[in-house]
Amino acid sequence: MVDAHDTAERWIGGGVTAERDRTIQVASLRYFDAAQCAARIASALGGAPPAAGRLERHGLPGSAEPFAMLWRSPSETWVLAGSPAPIDALRRGLGTTEAAWLVDLSGGVLGIHLAGTRALAVLRRLGSSLSIPRLGEARTGRFADVTVTVAGWHADEYLLLVERVFYEHLVDWIRETLADLRLEDDR
């Protein structure tokens, strides 16, 4: 047995690739009123909490510090980044305000990119179609019997965010689904 963070990272089947995002940093931005803290967030990161159900990506991938903001609930936005810098910047920008609060969840929430023309078919085999977002959307629902936040990351690409304790369980389901897609292709 190996520890969760040491397991294999990439699985392919049925034209779909599932790959763990090794660098993703996740922080939960909590607030009572998004408008109250929008200015601070904007000055710290250059972006505001997204509208309900939306995913906002800022900065080009590969550029200095790209990050994304993902709506979770009326009082919560997740900030995703490829390095700790944007989250640190946001923490500094928020300062000691009583309007918003940042909780670093990095390491506790893991990311899996699901990409390929049949990525949607995989998601449909993991959970409710109502919980599958379109491009630029983010939804939290029950996939593989656990809570997963899914973001429509690119065309034919989704980012799945799952609590670390359920990571292996989710990966197990994804592996099985990819195997089934292969079986279906072989028929």
Binding site: D3, A4, H5, A144, D145, V165, H169, E176
Partner: peptide, 15 residues
């Protein structure tokens, strides 16, 4: 099998 219900695994299960 293992997917019968979501199993929570320790972060250092290997240790």
């Amino acid at each position: 099998g293992n997917r019968y219900r979501p199993l929570k695994r320790l972060p250092a299960a290997g240790w």
